[in-house]
Simulated assay, not measured.
Amino acid sequence: MKQSQRYLALDVLRGMTIALMITVNTPGSWQYVYAPLRHASWHGCTPTDLVFPFFLFVVGVSMFFSFGKYGSTLNSESLKRLGRRTLLIFAIGLFLNSFPQWSHDFSKLRIMGVLQRIALAYGIGSLIVLSAPRKYIPFIGVGILLAYWGILAWFGGADPYSLEGNAVIPFDKAILGKQHLYTGFGIPFDPEGLLSTVPAIVTVLLGYMTGVIIKNTERVKVPGRLALYGLIAAVIGRLWGVVFPINKPLWTSSYVLYTAGLAALFLALLVFIIDIKGYKKWTSFFVVFGMNPLFIYALSGLWARTLGVLIKVETADGSVMSGSAWLYQNVFVPLAGNMNGSLLFALTHIFFFWLIGFILYKKRIFIKV
């Protein structure tokens, strides 16, 4: 059944994820972060671990409606368009990883990252949905998730889902090189690596199939239908997690189903509140983020690197602090203390980037990244 009116809930959910991504990425101090704003140490899923898959899920939903404008077919024009966008998003991610370029050791440049994963999941997901018959997409998704489970189970070590024993590390080392992997876990392991990006493609596919459900369902019945499928996916993911742990750094198959199910449930709630019941006044804050999501996210990353690396402040005792550390210690800690000051630092950034987004929104400037 054709739906002519766009769903504001999609823009709101997209904006919420960007706002939360900025919040969790820019605390005043990583030593003082409330537990819900931290990632799980390894297995498990905190509210912060929902943010990235929620964004990829919305990317998939948006893909369905966007591709519908061009006939949802793979041709020279659509291939050129999605190839250009994939390369652009990936290139911006590399630019942020290497910033500031004049002082970076490119022999140790991290190749992957959040934007790079978004680019690859979007690009490969787009190729699948534009080239494969729609009825086969769920089977393709299931096949990818089962294959990924098999790869980790068969090619991993004695504990195949551990940090040290997973199969993602040797695969990414062989393709990207040890020196180009993230080292924040204490060993070369990239939580946005190449192999673990494969199941992330399914997160996008699940979002795309959610778009199909929305399009073919009577508007008033959309929340119920999304809630049903979301609940089923979340329960299956949770049960699968007993044998294949829910894990964001590995982006396990159980994590894909669990988080996509929760995303569908949350989207169902937003559709009911915003698009069915018409409670829209509160949404404008998040819509601003949702109109230029990747641009605002990339800009926030650039600013964080500038404040944390380029800007230096000499203190009274002669020591040198980064601009972000100086602001936290001299402005936010006196205002709110260590823990709340760290949170206030992040929330201030949210407001700052919202102002930028608001100016763009008012001027009807939408930067397609």
Score class of each variant (00 low, 15 high):
Arg238Gln: 15
Lys362Glu: 14
Leu360Arg: 03
Thr203His: 01
Asp105Tyr: 06
Asn292Asp: 09
Phe171Ala: 07
Phe332Tyr: 11
Tyr136Gln: 11
Phe366Lys: 12
Val168His: 04
Leu163Val: 04
Ile137Asp: 10
Ile128His: 07
Gly318Leu: 10
Val168Arg: 05
Phe285His: 04
Leu115Met: 05
Ala200Thr: 00
Leu109Phe: 07
Lys108Ala: 05
Ala147Trp: 15
Trp282Tyr: 10
Gly224Met: 06
Met291Ile: 00
Tyr161Lys: 01
Lys69Ala: 10
Gly323Thr: 08
Ile111Asp: 01
Trp354Val: 06
Gly143Ser: 05
Phe353Glu: 01
Met1Tyr: 08
Val59Leu: 04
Tyr148Met: 08
Phe295Thr: 14
Thr46Asp: 05
Arg6Tyr: 12
Ala158Ser: 15
Asp105Met: 09
Phe345Ile: 10
Thr26Tyr: 04
Val51Ser: 03
Ile365Lys: 13
Leu299Gly: 06
Ser98Pro: 00
Lys178Val: 14
Leu347His: 11
Thr23Pro: 00
Trp102Tyr: 15
Pro160Gly: 12
Ala91Met: 10
Asn338Trp: 11
Val256Phe: 03
Met339Ser: 13
Arg84Cys: 00
Ile118Tyr: 02
Asp11Tyr: 04
His104Arg: 14
Pro160Asp: 13
Pro47Leu: 07
Phe295Lys: 05
Ile213Val: 13
Leu120Thr: 11
Ser253Asp: 02
Phe295Glu: 06
Leu82Glu: 02
Ser131Val: 10
Pro249Trp: 08
Val114Leu: 06
Leu343Glu: 05
Tyr229Gly: 09
Phe353Asp: 01
Lys108Asn: 04
Phe272Ser: 12
Ile92Cys: 09
Val61His: 06
Pro27Tyr: 03
Ser107Cys: 01
Met1Glu: 08
Ala91Gln: 00
Leu327Gly: 15
Tyr7Ile: 12
Leu257Ala: 08
Gly237Tyr: 13
Ala121Gln: 08
Asp172Pro: 02
Arg219Val: 07
Gly184Ala: 12
Leu79Val: 07
Val271Ala: 04
Ala316Ser: 15
Ile296Thr: 02
Ile89Asn: 06
Ala119Val: 10
Asp317Pro: 03
Ile22Lys: 02
Leu130Lys: 07
Gly186Glu: 12
Ala325Trp: 06
Ile232Asp: 09
Gly261Lys: 02
Pro334His: 02
Val12Gly: 13
Leu327Arg: 13
Phe353Cys: 01
Thr26Phe: 08
Ala167Trp: 09
Ser162Gly: 12
Ile92Met: 12
Leu20Tyr: 02
Ser324Ala: 14
Gly68Ser: 10
Ser72His: 13
Trp30Leu: 14
Gln31Asp: 15
Phe352Val: 14
Phe155Ala: 06
Leu82His: 14
Val288His: 04
Ala346Gly: 03
Tyr32Trp: 09
Ile187Ser: 06
Phe155Val: 00
Ile356Ala: 01
Met291Phe: 00
Val202Ile: 05
Tyr148Cys: 03
Gly141Pro: 01
Leu127Lys: 05
Asn25Ala: 15
Gly113Tyr: 04
Gly28Tyr: 05
Leu145Asn: 12
Asn75Trp: 13
Thr210Cys: 13
Val202Phe: 05
Ile236Cys: 14
His349Pro: 07
Asn166Ser: 12
Ile92Gln: 03
Pro188Thr: 06
Pro223Ala: 10
Ala304Tyr: 14
Thr23Ile: 12
Arg84Phe: 13
Gly141Cys: 02
Val309Gly: 01
Asp190Arg: 05
Thr183Tyr: 02
Gly337Pro: 03
Leu206Val: 12
Leu181Ser: 04
Asn166His: 07
Tyr34Gly: 05
Asp49Cys: 07
Leu127Val: 06
Gly224Pro: 06
